[in-house]
Design a binder for these strands. Structure first.
Length: 839
RNA sequence: GCGGGUGUGGCGGAAUGGUAGACGCCGGGGACUUAAAAUCCCCUGAUCCUUGAUCGUGCGGGUUCGAGUCCCGCCACCCGCACCA
């Protein structure tokens, strides 16, 4: 270390932040070189939607990725750490409607603002690869990929009942309907029939499920959520002979309970139900359709049925089972018809109870409980088969196999796998999205736009004063000629779901040729993403779609790997206390202050109640704007706060006191450096040890993404160095502290590094080497226990023998007092750790 | 209902089955200062008979020389899915 003696003892972020950000930019420090011989690391955070301003959630997400990216660089990796914009989507159109601005202009303005904010935070991003998905040089390639998938038979169009959001006037995917309401608008979703474009994600159901097993770097929670979403179930499909001579296929996962069947039920929109022409039947079907789909309604919905008068012949007993229309049977799962076994399925139990149908027992805990009555609910568990003819005595699994093989032998049905996953409807009746590259011709039908005519670009002159799709209303845009017959034709006016945009952006970051979406070899240099970081809210939608695109592109030979993200980390939210007036209205943190033990509104002293600490949201006004905080404390303090205290997967409660503390530490570390004596000499062994232990531990912590622990260790070493007398060891400790904290506080680290006489950037420095000899202590503290409780601690040389430790422990006065002459039965010695005396 | 997770001081949280509460925040006391800011030092789980001891990681059991950590049974809260046959 070589530092001028008169270094200012205050660190001024307002000068240093901009200075170093400009240096990194000028030197292209963080541009990733695909041809570098170094090992490659791709660190990616979920790219933001340009909603207007960066919020604290972004800051936390990108700070974590940044620390990892900078750390990897210091570890000699060539790091790809890009940033871009998920720039299509409805808020832009809402802004257009509300403020009369163009969605494109609004979006591009937001991008500029937010990019400036990200730059202020000093992220080590490769801005040369930046793109926005709303520009033709991105979405044009997306259209090409969509056509590739079409050629591979993975894109199709069909009329289907869709979830129509009456407020946003658009179609929603199943995944975008939450409790029967639109995920964005919150409006009650209606059913409509429309011609829709679909992606055949179901072709990959098995693959996507199996792939989860290879994703060791993913949280179990997310894998499980995806597994449940894909929803594989194995069972039996077989057909009943109906009394009207028709066949009725049903699906069941419990073929073992077939002898317990007491009725058959079909969905209201099942053909068997639709074919009934009585007035009562039509009324009942209408009643079912009206039934709400919200969680609360489903929970409390009474089981309702309508006896069709038809009967179904049991394949083994020959008994005639009544056929009902039931409101709890879903048309789009299995065959839309079920075989009902009330004894062993709760829904069937409720239904049978209501309509007085028999509830036979066919599974019991043991054979002698074959006639045990039910206690008010169905028993869905394991057991042994009873009252079931040839199945009696078998366990559930054997009985399933037996029934399936007998049904198969009879030719009445077969074992079958059913999935919960549906194909992905990607049509949106929206302007601000990727135009779907197809043309409708009266003569030739639906014709893909030839690739050489891509991109199909959005028209700029559109109006948003009328609801619905502006592309549909545009005077000229949709009128074109058919690529096949050259006759008059119209363009598809639907645009793609924005989840398509985010399903391949990570490929485009890795490789962006002008003439194609990506270069396969170039992509292979970087992918899969080594560490992907984002919010848990994307556990299913985005992550499943992105996996599907990668699997699909791999299947059609465009990629050499199927899974895009080797490791996934889902960070917690940034939360803040909430403030409310007596009338329930929310106040922002800036409007209130603490007055003694109470909280009041600054403006008029009105009493304020403090509420739960919840996710920052505009509606509860508990937001803190990053810009203001950066202006006040500088980027490093904000970054440090984002990493401190809370484990990254948990929520982080923002507090004024917390950021103050971080600011204090920034200054404290700076002061330690500024007030050090560069010419000091001499060794301080304990400090040197602590330094090397810290280097090793911080590296481990960062690799495990345990930033809060890394932060705590840096505090510890700082504290020890502050108290130590000047020495060469102390200067080494300060050097190490600058290096270790440089991924977290890069501006301070650069400033100090340059003042210390380095003419290179600390961003380009290597992670400090650990001296293994200094990792081990030569003296250790030994705990001495008696009766399982700590009685004394003593110091012993590292590696002392059991006998020595035993003797040392027994020599302790405190231990002797505790023993009080009792007989010693046993002494347990854990070397370098403890001695436990048992009496 | 099904599945998963989490419970440790006033708060955020540490702790390979081996000294519970590292580190930070808040709070209290003191130093420096004309004063303030900044900074520094000390204290800060509870209780008691306070040189010390007892209790203490949601609750109840268990395994162990030793349990926040492992096992069994509960409770509370959070998240996901949800008439999926």
């Amino acid at each position: 270390m070589n530092k001028p003696g008169n270094t200012d003892t205050r660190f001024d972020p307002s000068a240093a932040d901009a200075k170093w950000q400009a240096r990194w930019d000028a030197a292209n420090t963080f541009a990733a070189d695909s041809d570098s011989p170094k090992p490659k690391s791709y660190v990616l955070e979920m790219f933001p939607y340009p909603s207007g301003r960066i919020h604290m959630g972004h800051v936390r997400n990108y700070t974590m990725g940044d620390v990892l990216a900078r750390y990897k660089r210091m570890r000699g990796h060539e790091v790809l750490h890009p940033m871009g914009w998920d720039a299509f989507g409805m808020p832009a159109e809402n802004a257009a409607m509300e403020k009369g601005v163009h969605p494109g202009g609004w979006t591009r303005d937001n991008i500029e603002t937010m990019k400036g904010q990200l730059k202020q935070l000093g992220f080590a991003l490769d801005w040369t690869r930046e793109f926005a998905t709303c520009e033709p040089d991105y979405y044009g390639h997306e259209q090409a990929l969509f056509l590739d998938l079409y050629e591979a038979g993975l894109v199709y169009r069909k009329e289907s009942e869709v979830n129509w959001d009456p407020v946003d006037m658009t179609v929603l995917a199943n995944e975008q309907v939450i409790d029967g309401k639109g995920w964005r608008s919150g409006a009650e979703v209606e059913k409509r029939k429309l011609n829709q474009w679909f992606l055949k994600i179901t072709d990959f159901a098995e693959e996507l499920l199996e792939g989860l097993g290879t994703l060791d770097g993913w949280p179990d929670k997310v894998r499980l959520m995806q597994e449940n979403w894909i929803g594989k179930s194995k069972g039996l499909q077989f057909a009943f002979d109906l009394s009207n001579g028709e066949k009725l296929p049903v699906y069941t996962t419990r073929p073992d309970t077939i002898f317990g069947a007491s009725f058959v039920a079909v969905a209201a929109d099942h053909p068997v139900a639709q074919a009934l022409d009585s007035e009562e039947a039509r009324e009942f079907i209408a009643l079912c359709k009206r039934g709400g789909t919200t969680a609360a309604e489903l929970e409390t919905a009474e089981k309702l049925g309508f006896d069709t008068g038809l009967t179904a012949r049991h394949p083994f007993t020959g008994a005639d089972l009544p056929v009902y229309i039931a409101n709890f049977v879903l048309m789009d799962y299995g065959t839309g018809a079920i075989i009902s076994v009330p004894g062993h399925d709760q829904r069937d139990f409720e239904f049978a109870t209501k309509y007085g149908l028999p509830i036979p027992r066919v599974v019991a805990a043991s054979a002698d409980e074959a006639d045990k009555p039910f206690t008010g609910e169905a028993e869905a568990g394991e057991g042994v088969l009873v009252n079931s003819d040839f199945l009696d005595g078998m366990d559930v699994e054997d009985a399933k196999r037996e029934v399936i093989s007998r049904i198969e032998a009879m030719g009445a049905g077969q074992g079958q796998t059913v999935w919960r996953l549906r194909d992905w409807g990607v049509s949106r009746q929206r302007y601000w999205g990727t135009p779907i590259p197809f043309i409708h011709c009266e003569k030739c039908g639906v014709v893909p736009v030839p690739k050489e005519q891509l991109p199909v670009t959005l028209p700029e002159d559109v109006d948003f004063q009328t609801p619905g799709n502006p592309l549909e209303r545009h005077a000229s845009w949709k009128h074109t000629t058919c690529p096949e017959c050259s006759g008059e034709a119209v363009r598809e006016t639907d645009t793609l779901d924005t989840f398509v945009n985010s399903s391949w952006y990570f490929l485009r970051f890795a490789s962006q040729p002008a003439d194609k979406p990506f270069d396969r070899e170039e992509v292979a240099k970087w992918l899969p993403v080594e560490q992907y970081i984002g919010g848990i809210e994307h556990a299913i939608l985005h992550l499943l779609y992105a996996r599907f695109w990668t699997h699909a592109l791999s299947a059609i030979g465009k990629l050499d790997f199927a899974e895009p993200f080797a490791s996934l980390f889902t960070q917690g939210m940034v939360t803040h206390e909430t403030y409310q007036l007596g009338d329930g209205s929310w106040l922002s943190p800036g409007e209130v202050r603490k007055d003694g033990a109470d909280w009041i509104r600054i403006e008029d002293g009105a009493p304020v109640t403090t509420g739960r600490v919840v996710k920052m949201s505009k509606s509860k006004k508990n937001v803190v704007d990053p810009d203001a905080i950066i202006g006040q404390y500088g980027a490093d303090a904000v970054r440090w706060f984002m990493l401190s205290d809370s484990p990254p997967e948990r929520d982080l409660p923002w507090s004024e006191a917390g950021i103050e503390g971080c600011h204090r530490f920034v200054q404290r570390l700076w002061r330690l450096f500024a007030q050090s004596d560069a010419n000091a000499s001499g060794e301080d062994k304990p400090l040197a040890r602590k330094t090397h232990q810290t280097i090793a531990a911080v590296a481990e912590d960062i690799e495990a993404l345990s930033f809060n622990k890394a932060v705590a260790r840096i505090y510890e070493l700082t504290g020890m160095a502050e108290k130590a007398a000047p020495s060469a060891s102390r200067n080494d400790a300060i050097d190490a502290l600058l290096l270790l904290s440089s991924p977290m506080m890069p501006h301070l680290a650069e400033e100090a590094w340059s003042l210390a006489g380095h003419d290179t950037l600390i961003a380009d420095a290597n992670w400090p080497e650990v001296d293994p000899a200094l990792l081990v202590e030569d003296e250790v503290t030994i705990a001495v226990q008696h009766k399982g409780k700590l009685r004394d601690t003593l110091t012993a040389p590292k590696g002392a023998s059991k006998e020595d430790l035993e003797a040392l422990a027994l020599a302790s006065e405190k231990v002797q007092r505790s023993l009080d002459g009792a007989d010693i039965r046993k002494i347990i010695v854990v070397p370098d750790r403890l001695v436990n005396i048992v009496t």
